[in-house]
């Protein structure tokens, strides 16, 4: 049972680390603000959640687990809200979304 739990925890951490990294690449390489925001959003909810769940399994039943749940809850509430407000603000600020110019012969 312990081995299984530790495996699950390792898996969560590894997947979280991978998603964080890919999100970071996206934030650097995507062409405009809105696409970058999409990449950042992945790291802020799914990846953060996975890493925190991995830590929770490591922590076991304790006050630490409770605090991790709180952090997860806060991140899950605040990050999408902040992203929403930011996108709304950008759209109202007349920031045009990026549109791919159609290739010839398409």
């Amino acid at each position: 049972m312990d081995i299984l739990l530790s495996l699950v925890s390792q898996f969560c951490l590894a997947l979280g680390a991978f998603l964080i990294f890919s999100g970071g690449v996206g934030v650097l390489r995507f062409p405009d603000f809105y696409t970058r925001m999409h990449a950042a959003g992945v790291t802020e909810t799914l990846a953060a959640g996975l890493i925190l769940v991995g830590l929770m399994i490591l922590a076991g039943w304790s006050l630490v687990l409770f605090k991790l749940v709180l952090i997860l809850l806060f991140i899950m509430i605040t990050s999408p809200t902040a992203s929403h407000a930011l996108a709304k603000s950008a759209l109202h600020g007349k920031l045009e979304p990026f549109r791919q110019v159609k290739q010839e012969g398409e």
Binding site: F74, I77, T78, T81, H84, A85, K88, H92
Partner: peptide, 16 residues
């Protein structure tokens, strides 16, 4: 005033 979502979420967060 125009950030409705923000206001509601913040109202939930304030006591916390």
């Amino acid at each position: 005033g125009d950030h409705q979502v923000l206001r509601i979420v913040s109202k939930i967060l304030m006591p916390v």
